[in-house]
């Protein structure tokens, strides 16, 4: 690195600070307005007014925001567990098993990555209706039990497993399930955690599908819950809406900061190997 004098340093930090403000600005504004009374916000008085947690109290007591959080948690957890399990089983088959049409089948699964779920909501809604699954956790989880992306990603990870391990396992006489459970899964643990984090965030962020298939607060996840809050307010109750948004963003921010390391590793694996 070249020598950096103090003036350069100031400019660098200034640049970083500006970028940080760009990213953090909307957060700061959201958190700040969530502390102000709506009447003050409506008057346009964003500074100098009284600050309180009253909006949070209102959000928790007057709206179903906590129920929405619970619903999202249930849906995202079930989706995550299912995806990690089914994707790893699928990836295992593509890496460690030989069967007729393996390559073709893999490309068929890859092709599903090209088909957008958004373009398939009409028949999927009809399916949900036919099996009387509307307005239930089941329909929010079932379509996402597996993912082509997950199978693809884990296939890449499983390929890193040395061939000797498989040979040793064959000699030991391990059956496929034992090899999968005792060797493959522990070996590819990092990738599994990465996939889990992705599945969780992906499920947490679902918007369109739950919006179409939930009709009550009992099952409505948090994204659509916020939509619900927003559309019920005739007098934009900004303070309470912002408080609800902050309540919703906190869990994912925590997961993100704690799991940052895994996101990076997983992302870069995906990025360089595609």
């Amino acid at each position: 690195m070249m020598q950096i004098n103090n003036r350069h340093l100031i400019w660098r930090y200034l640049g970083l600070g500006l970028l940080a403000l760009l990213i953090l600005g909307p957060f700061i504004l959201g958190v700040w307005t969530s502390l102000l009374p709506t009447a003050e916000i409506a008057k346009g008085a964003l500074i100098g007014g009284p600050v309180s947690l009253a909006n949070y109290g209102a959000a928790v007591h007057q709206t179903a925001i906590l129920r929405y959080l619970l619903n999202s948690l249930v849906i995202a957890t079930l989706t995550t567990i299912a995806q990690v399990l089914l994707c790893s089983l699928g990836a295992y088959a593509f890496v460690f098993l030989t069967f007729k049409g393996r390559e073709a089948l893999f490309y068929v699964i890859l092709a599903t990555m090209m088909l957008p779920f958004e373009a398939e909501v009409i028949p999927n809604f009809a399916t949900a209706r036919q099996f009387n699954l509307l307005n239930h956790y089941a329909i929010l989880v079932l379509p996402f039990l597996t993912s082509a992306f997950g199978i693809f990603m884990l296939r890449q990870a499983f390929r890193q497993i040395p061939g000797e391990l498989k040979e040793a396992a064959d000699i030991e006489g391990l059956n496929p399930w034992q090899f999968y459970w005792h060797v493959v899964l522990p070996y590819a643990r990092i990738s599994l955690v990465t996939l889990a984090a992705y599945s969780f965030l992906g499920s947490w962020n679902q918007y369109l599908w739950p919006m179409l298939t939930t009709f009550s607060d009992r099952f409505r996840p948090v994204q659509d819950g916020l939509r619900q809050l927003q559309s019920q307010e005739t007098f934009n109750n900004w303070g309470m809406i912002q408080a609800s948004a902050v309540i919703v963003v906190l869990p994912t921010l925590i997961v993100l900061f704690v799991g940052q390391h895994f996101f990076k590793t997983g992302l870069n694996q995906g990025a360089t190997k595609s």
Binding site: I23, L29, G30, W204, L226, N236, Q242, A245, T252, L256
Partner: peptide, 30 residues
């Protein structure tokens, strides 16, 4: 700074929409 720059990954679509809706909203918006 690295942590801050990655922060919006934890922001879901409806939260982002609400934050920005306020910024762009007429008269009361920033």
């Amino acid at each position: 700074f690295r942590t801050i720059f990655s922060a919006t990954m934890g922001v879901s679509v409806s939260v982002a929409a609400i934050f920005w809706l306020f910024i762009f909203s007429p008269s009361v918006g920033l």
